[in-house]
Simulated scan of single mutants.
Amino acid sequence: MGVEVCDPRWLTAVPGAELVVALDEVAVHAAEGHRVTVLIDLVPDNVAMLRGLATEAVGEGARKVRVRPHGVDRVDLVYAAVELGRVAEDDAVEVQFDVTSAALLRADPSAFVRADPLVVLEDGTVVPICAGLAEYALGRLGSLDELLEEWDPEPVRDLCRVALTRALADTGPLVSWYEHLTRTAAEMRGGC
């Protein structure tokens, strides 16, 4: 099971975890010798700047570029996918674009009903899949093994099933899966 941490102090508690930071933090953590993944929030206002932001992150020492869309329309998702393909090729860097194809959702829906990776937030709270799912938190990091022993991932899988149904109704070629998850979680929480 993959684990992402948002603060380097948790790297010792979770050996092998991926350090995911914002663009303005890349240089500091890369200089400390960490393998850094930059997380770029893609919003309508920065779609045209995406390639430049990714190139800047690589220049600062990021070994991986991850892009998480928020409120971006279908055309901009396709544009971003093309630009990230160019970044991966030009900069020889690993790229993770937090979208999936609608065709893959339909072809293998069970692949999206899961409770991983785990994300360790800055305060040590461990959540499944992505930030924004705090109500599904395993708890605060002390011992990851103990948290996993006590955790029931089934509510997260239930959330995934509801989000999957909604995502399948999306008619675009690309689907922002994590955005569907967090939006669905917020709507389910608001409906209580």
Rank of each mutant, 00 (worst) to 15 (best):
V58G: 01
A137H: 09
E146W: 08
R189A: 15
M49R: 13
G2Y: 11
V3W: 07
D41E: 14
Y136D: 03
M1C: 04
V36H: 02
H34I: 02
G85H: 02
L121C: 04
W177K: 10
S101W: 02
V113A: 09
H29C: 04
A13M: 12
R86H: 12
G139W: 12
V26M: 08
D76L: 03
D108L: 12
A54I: 06
E89S: 12
P69Q: 09
V38E: 00
G61E: 06
V78I: 12
A48Y: 03
A163Y: 06
A169V: 04
R68E: 13
V65L: 01
L42H: 05
D76F: 09
G16M: 08
A169H: 14
M49D: 15
A163P: 08
L174C: 09
L174H: 09
P117E: 02
P117L: 04
L147G: 10
P153M: 05
G190F: 05
H29A: 00
P69K: 09
D76A: 15
E94Q: 02
A137T: 07
G139K: 11
V26E: 05
A13F: 15
P153H: 07
E4F: 15
A81F: 06
L104N: 05
L53H: 06
D7N: 14
V119W: 06
V72I: 10
D41H: 11
L50S: 04
L118M: 11
D98H: 12
R9S: 05
T12G: 12
D98K: 05
W151H: 14
R106E: 12
D7T: 01
T100A: 03
A186W: 11
G139Q: 11
D158F: 05
T12P: 00
E25L: 14
I129A: 07
L42D: 02
V58L: 03
P128I: 10
R161H: 06
A131C: 02
A22P: 01
A27R: 15
T37F: 00
G2H: 14
E89Y: 11
A30N: 05
T171Q: 13
A54L: 06
A31N: 08
V38W: 01
T12K: 15
L53Q: 13
V26C: 08
T165M: 09
A186E: 14
L104P: 00
R189L: 11
L84Y: 03
A81H: 13
S101E: 06
D170V: 06
A22E: 14
L19G: 10
C160Y: 07
T55Y: 03
A167I: 07
V28N: 01
L105D: 07
V58D: 01
L141P: 07
R86Y: 09
V87L: 01
R189H: 13
G71E: 07
V65M: 00
R106G: 14
P128K: 10
L104E: 11
Y136W: 10
E32I: 00
L174F: 14
A13D: 13
H70F: 15
F112T: 05
E94N: 00
M188S: 06
M188H: 04
D108R: 15
V36Y: 05
R183E: 12
C192R: 14
L141F: 09
D76Y: 07
E150P: 00
V3T: 15
D7M: 00
A134R: 15
G124L: 10
V175N: 08
R161C: 08
R86M: 04
A80C: 09
T184Y: 06
V127K: 09
L53P: 03
S101N: 02
C160K: 05
D158R: 14
E187R: 15
S101C: 01
D7Y: 02
W10E: 03
A48F: 06
W10K: 07
